[in-house]
């Protein structure tokens, strides 16, 4: 049976009570996920967040989210926060060649831009590339 492998960028936000939990270890050990930390911060009140990509089997990924929530960690899937505003877009295409996952692409032959949020890995390259700020990250 082929396993459905996925890669998602997520933000984990945690309170002082769980800041001591070895979260990344747990994701590897219990769920066989490959985490790659992109950004992390813990403030003096010991509240913090980790922005990381998680690669692994879809089933395991889903189970890990449940486990994290049980621990009181809020999980935000970043892809769902990337918004393409069609009404602002000029349909130029400047975002398409820098998009690593082809979430933003051109429908040919009419050369119209489309956004497939399921493919988005929230790398935010499109935000830098778009000349009219038609892509935003709404946290």
């Amino acid at each position: 049976m082929t396993k459905n492998m996925i890669s998602k960028n997520v933000i984990l936000r945690f309170s002082p009570e769980v800041v001591g939990e070895p979260i990344v270890y747990l994701l590897v050990k219990e769920f066989d996920l490959v985490p790659n930390i992109i950004k992390a911060s813990v403030n003096p009140d010991k509240q913090g967040y980790i922005l990381l990509s998680l690669t692994g089997e879809e089933e395991n990924y889903k189970a890990s989210l449940k486990r994290l929530e049980e621990l009181g960690i809020s999980v935000q899937c970043l892809m769902e926060r990337i918004k393409w505003h069609e009404e602002i877009c000029t349909q130029c295409g400047a975002c398409t060649a820098v998009c690593p996952s082809l979430a933003l692409s051109i429908r040919r032959p009419e050369m119209a831009i489309r956004f497939d949020s399921d493919k988005c890995v929230a790398c935010q390259m499109c935000i830098q590339a778009c000349p009219v700020n038609a892509v935003t990250l709404d946290l």
């Binding site: 000029t90 349909q91 130029c92 295409g93 400047a94 398409t96 820098v98 009419e110």
Partner: peptide
């Protein structure tokens, strides 16, 4: 991979 900076749909 190639990408335009000018909009073909707008040109049409």
């Amino acid at each position: 991979r190639t990408a335009p900076l000018s909009s073909y749909t707008k040109a049409v």
